[in-house]
Amino acid sequence: MNRRHNSAKALEAFGNLRKAGFRNISIDLIFGFESLSTEEWRRNIELAIELSPEHLSCYQLGIEKGTKLYRSYMDGSYDPLPDEGSNSQYALLQELLFQAGYVQYEISSFCKPGLESRHNSSYWDFTPYFGFGPSAHSFDGVGREWNDKGINKYIFGWGQGIRGFKSEQLTLRDHLNEFIMLSLRTVKGMEILELSRLLDNYAGSSYSTQTTPQIAEFKNNLHTLLKQGLLHQTPTHIQIPPHNLFLSDTLIRTLFVASLG
Rank of each mutant, 00 (worst) to 15 (best):
D75K: 09
E106C: 01
L61P: 10
Y154K: 10
A91K: 15
L51T: 07
L81D: 10
G76L: 09
G101M: 03
Q94Y: 00
I155Y: 07
G164A: 12
K112D: 01
A48E: 00
E39N: 09
E84T: 14
T38F: 04
F156N: 14
G76E: 11
Y129V: 00
S135C: 11
I49Q: 00
Q104V: 04
Q94N: 13
R42S: 11
N152S: 15
T38M: 11
E116Y: 04
E116Q: 10
I63V: 15
I155W: 08
Q160C: 13
D79W: 04
S37G: 12
G157K: 11
H55F: 08
G161F: 09
G62F: 03
E46L: 15
C58V: 15
Y105Q: 03
N44W: 00
E39R: 12
A100G: 04
F126N: 13
S35W: 04
Q104I: 02
Q99P: 00
S109R: 00
N44Y: 01
Y105F: 03
I155G: 03
G131M: 11
N147I: 03
C58E: 02
T67N: 09
N44T: 10
T67F: 06
G164P: 06
G62V: 13
F165I: 03
N147V: 05
D79F: 09
H55I: 08
N152L: 14
F31Q: 02
Q89N: 05
K112A: 02
C58P: 04
S135H: 06
S35H: 11
F132I: 15
A136E: 11
V103L: 05
R163W: 14
R42H: 12
K68E: 12
Y73R: 14
P134G: 14
L97S: 01
P82R: 06
Q94P: 00
L97G: 01
E46G: 01
P53H: 07
